[in-house]
């Protein structure tokens, strides 16, 4: 047997054709593989989403003291009074006296904040209420302020009103 005869026999032995439906079977299998892969991707996405939700719930349950609402996470707001309330202009006209209003200013406000002690706020409110209820007479109060101012002027200039006594030295 020479090489050519051997080659010919080999080719004959391997000249086998697959069945006619073989290619269709392969195509079907490939298509099934595609669908399986798509389903795997969907399941993987769903599983990842559920896992993320479960982790988030777990964290929330394990840390109950942690504030949940966004409001509680912001710094505490300061109670301030508007600068107009500080000047006692309403004392002259009780009817037009504006009520001291505590306004809530956001910590992020652009206006400068004026912080007043809570006790001062309470005292001022009480004073204004007394004026409104006529327990304090603003006219009399004005007289008291005026006399107070006079006394202060006298105290401040005692040397100008006194006469100087000359001192005599004897030898």
């Amino acid at each position: 047997m020479n090489d050519e005869q051997l080659q010919k026999e080999l080719e004959e032995a391997l000249a086998i054709e697959p069945t006619p439906h073989f290619l269709a079977r392969v195509r079907r299998e490939v298509e099934t593989g595609k669908q399986r892969a798509a389903a795997r991707v969907k399941w993987a996405s769903a599983t990842a989403g559920l896992a993320a939700v479960a982790v988030a719930i777990g964290i929330m349950l394990l840390e109950p003291s942690r504030p949940i609402t966004p409001e509680s996470t912001t710094p505490p707001e300061a109670v301030v009074l508007s600068p107009a309330v500080e000047t006692p202009t309403p004392l002259l006209s009780p009817k037009a006296t504006p009520k001291p209003t505590a306004i809530h200013v956001s910590p992020h406000s652009a206006e400068p904040e004026v912080l007043i002690d809570e006790r001062e706020v309470a005292a001022l409110r009480s004073f204004l209420q007394d004026v409104q209820e006529r327990k304090i007479d603003p006219a009399r109060l004005e007289g008291l302020f005026e006399s107070g101012r006079k006394r202060a002027r006298q105290r401040l200039s005692p040397c100008l009103s006194q006469r100087s006594i000359p001192l005599l030295l004897r030898r």
């Binding site: 391997l14 086998i16 697959p18 069945t19 079977r25 392969v26 299998e29 490939v30």
Partner: peptide
């Protein structure tokens, strides 16, 4: 290439159905 895969598989297995199964798996 499907025929090539089938014939390579057949060259090893010499069983048509097995060769088709293996070729199909290889092509997938």
């Amino acid at each position: 290439s499907s025929r090539l895969a089938f014939r390579v598989a057949y060259g090893v297995l010499r069983h048509r159905e097995d060769a088709e199964d293996v070729a199909q798996e290889a092509l997938t």
